[in-house]
């Protein structure tokens, strides 16, 4: 197993401990080879735990930071129905953040700690949320392209080997698929609307297309963690494989929208049976990842502000609960 290469047993373990470790490793390897599930109390290699924690917390942070670009349009949504759908969608994202933080907590890290890491700039979230939402059509493009890419990434994660993660993803994917449809519906309405609305829709698709393709992560030959994650049955398909599938779906759907994708190099390769797209600007991706995107500092600042402004509320809730417990004990 690939996992054994990463799991070094420290020398100072007692013979009993070494035996327990070996038994744990054997159990883990068997579960993975049977494509079954690891649960929170099961033994797992430290590197597996670390990889999952990184991935799940990043995913949770992405949901929470991802609320901001869409919340940006709640007060200005152009119809009450759209306002209502958008509010529900952003609320869903908070819910996804909650499930995912909970799943990550089963691996031994507290939500408070993860939140601290996010605010301190130590934790990552999906780079795409560092782009601004400058028009209403961005609500459509985010739903259709960004949530669409997220679904491609996430549906296979419903079968991830770590139980709590896989189960959280089932519910998340159901809601994401709704989100994707509503994004498509926004764009369809705009595309069939006035010339100005159609232009707004095309402009949004032009801006979100490449960043959404980059959501799948770097090309396979530049993705150091992918191989191990696939060996552990966390990840099921490579970045490029998923990206290619996504492009294929978007090519079909953009025709129905009556819009175009800003990529003249899209083609179906008959030999490989895969969709191909034009070159992506991976330098920009790395720049945004490194904190130099248009909105990096404002996104983290908003989270910090909300968290710090809310500190007195959380303290009050804790103090009140403690007092209530004391009263009950005294009674």
């Amino acid at each position: 197993m690939a996992s054994q290469n990463l799991q070094s047993v420290p020398a100072e373990l007692s013979p009993e401990e070494q035996e327990r470790e070996a038994a744990g490793q054997a159990y883990f390897d068997r579960i993975i080879s049977e494509d079954s599930r690891i649960e929170p109390r099961d033994w797992m290699p430290a590197a597996y735990r670390k990889t999952l924690l990184r991935q799940i917390s990043q995913h949770a942070h992405s949901e929470i930071i991802g609320m901001q670009p869409e919340a940006n349009w709640i007060t200005r949504a152009p119809s009450l129905k759209r306002k209502s759908i958008l509010m529900a969608k952003v609320q869903d994202e908070a819910g996804h953040g909650l499930y995912l933080y909970s799943a990550a907590e089963t691996l031994g890290q507290s939500r408070d700690q993860m939140m601290e890491d996010l605010i301190a700039g130590k934790a990552r979230y999906s780079s795409i949320f560092n782009y601004p939402t400058i028009s209403w059509a961005d609500m459509g493009a985010i739903g259709w392209l960004v949530d669409g890419a997220a679904i491609c990434n996430q549906v296979p994660l419903c079968r991830a080997s770590y139980g709590p993660y896989g189960r959280a993803m089932v519910r998340i994917c159901k809601e994401e698929s709704f989100h994707q449809r509503q994004g498509f519906e926004i764009l369809l309405e705009l595309s069939n609307g006035t010339a100005a609305q159609k232009q707004m829709a095309q402009d949004a698709v032009n801006r979100w297309y490449a960043p959404s393709l980059m959501m799948f992560g770097p090309p396979d030959d530049d993705s150091p963690n992918s191989k191990q994650s696939m060996a552990w049955n966390i990840k099921r398909f490579s970045n490029d494989e998923l990206r290619s599938r996504f492009v294929g779906m978007m090519v079909e759907q953009v025709r129905v929208l009556g819009l175009t994708l800003p990529d003249k190099d899209i083609r179906f390769n008959e030999e490989t049976k895969k969709w191909e797209h034009g070159p992506l600007d991976w330098n920009e991706f790395k720049e945004v990842l490194a904190g130099r995107g248009p909105c990096n500092s404002q996104r983290v600042e908003r989270r910090r502000e909300a968290h710090e402004n809310g500190a007195w509320v959380r303290e009050a809730a804790v103090a009140y609960a403690r007092k209530q417990a004391q009263k009950e004990n005294a009674a």
Binding site: I64, I74, V90, G97, R302, A306, N309, A311, V313
Partner: peptide, 9 residues
Amino acid sequence: ISRAPELEE
């Protein structure tokens, strides 16, 4: 929404 003291809120 996105500014509350806790995610639950």
